[in-house]
């Protein structure tokens, strides 16, 4: 992965969380943790998230597990997938201990991470592993 021939891509991350304090924190973490051009779009509920998906090209979604009125990611991820979103979805939660987190792949999520584990290095790893376009396989 030599960066010389790589063209600069902008990664747009959609962050869904019901606590606006988290937006400030996430902005700060993403800004400091990644070399790429990144844009963070923050919304507080799934309806707004769906609206954003209609309007913007989103590279990755970071989703708070317990959102208002939606039980947890097991109901919210399928809603996002039903909008034909095929990018990675990661579950961000203050606790990922509950047993159902073990089945995150079945519900269409790509990864899970605890909010307390989320620092700049972790954000960098996630973007490297999941959001970069060059991991794509060409449809030959």
């Amino acid at each position: 992965m030599s960066s010389a021939i790589e063209e600069v891509e902008t990664i747009t991350i959609l962050f869904v969380d019901d606590n606006p304090d988290e937006f400030v924190l996430m902005e700060w973490l993403v800004k400091g943790g990644v070399d790429q051009n990144t844009e963070l779009v923050c919304v507080t509920d799934i309806e707004s998230a769906c609206k954003v998906l209609d309007e913007k090209d989103i590279s990755m979604i970071l989703l708070d597990n317990k959102l208002h009125l939606n039980d947890d990611f097991r109901t919210s991820v399928p809603v996002l997938r039903s909008k034909a979103f095929t990018g990675p979805i990661g579950i961000v939660s203050s606790s990922i201990e509950p047993e159902y987190f073990q089945e995150f792949e079945q519900y269409g999520a790509d990864f899970r991470i605890g909010k307390n584990e989320l620092d700049r290095n972790a954000i960098g790893f996630i973007i490297d592993e999941f959001a970069k376009k060059d991991t794509k396989l060409s449809d030959d």
Binding site: R81, T86, G87, E105, G108
Partner: peptide, 11 residues
């Protein structure tokens, strides 16, 4: 889209 997974997973 068909399987409700991410492109990353399919790839």
């Amino acid at each position: 889209i068909i399987l409700g997974l991410s492109e990353h997973t399919i790839n």
